[in-house]
């Protein structure tokens, strides 16, 4: 028995040997002899994260087993998937391949739906306003560049006035060129101020939505099937329900 304990504790590396050994010992004790074994290869979807309980006792992840002939109960489970219970009958001396595709659990599908809804709301409350604000910021930048350009023209005009070398040039500057450029500058400045005000308003709305969205609870996935698989289950009832669990102890160990 000490040898069996050691084998179980070492991550089921020698599980087929263990099972075979158990079967042999059981046969010896029970007086039933000449039982043969069969090999079983499991193809489970998902391939890497599944577990299963064999005959309600052993939690295993291996895909190749050697079992005594006769019916064996399997409970397959993987994260986010439903527990699938099935019984496989092993015929002595035969190799079998079992393919099981674990369906997604209802809780996971609900979680996925809630998560998509949450992400959509987040996009609406964060990404969309931020994009609009970014666009408004770029637009404001362009308006600022236009205003700066118009202002630079006025500075050029001022230099042209200071350096003018004959009266007619000054008259043209003061009566035609500069008034036109001042008008353009004022229009550009008005456009910039309007766009800056709109951008600030958008930024305020974006901040408000961002802070508001931070209070939205993110859906969390509680794998009820794992609880079921591990032995604890929720039993709904008229007054709310109750958790129930089963405890199994192997007295032969």
């Amino acid at each position: 028995m000490k040898f069996m304990k050691a084998m179980v504790r070492r991550d089921m590396i020698h599980l087929p040997s263990l099972l075979l050994l158990l079967a042999t010992m059981g046969g010896g004790i029970g007086g039933v002899s000449a039982q043969t074994s069969g090999k079983l290869h499991l193809q489970i979807d998902p391939a890497n994260s599944f577990s299963y309980k064999l005959d309600h006792h052993f939690t295993i992840q291996q895909t190749d087993l050697e079992l005594l002939e006769g019916p064996h109960h399997f409970s397959f489970w993987a994260p986010q998937r439903k527990v699938v219970d099935t019984t496989v009958t092993i015929t002595g001396g035969e190799d079998r391949i079992i393919q099981v595709r674990l369906p997604y659990s209802t809780e996971y599908l609900v979680y996925q739906r809630d998560l998509r809804s949450y992400e959509k709301r987040m996009r609406v409350m964060r990404l969309l306003p931020a994009t609009v604000t970014g666009g408004a910021l770029i637009f404001t930048g362009i308006k600022y560049a236009n205003m700066k350009k118009a202002h630079d023209r006025l500075e050029t005009d001022a230099d042209a006035y200071d350096n003018a070398t004959f009266p007619y040039a000054i008259t043209v500057l003061k009566e035609e060129v500069i008034p036109g450029h001042i008008d353009e500058f004022e229009k550009a400045r008005t456009a910039f101020r309007v766009s800056a005000a709109v951008t600030v308003a958008f930024a305020g709305v974006t901040t408000w939505l961002y802070l508001r969205s931070a209070k939205l609870p993110k859906p969390e996935f509680h794998d009820a099937e794992k609880v079921r698989f591990d032995g604890l289950s929720w039993m709904p009832g008229p007054n709310g329900g109750a958790w129930t669990g089963g405890l199994t102890w192997n007295f032969t160990r």
Partner: peptide
């Protein structure tokens, strides 16, 4: 650029 006060050029 205040046109009314820009009168510093002697040729103006």
């Amino acid at each position: 650029l205040d046109l009314a006060n820009r009168t510093s050029n002697p040729l103006d």
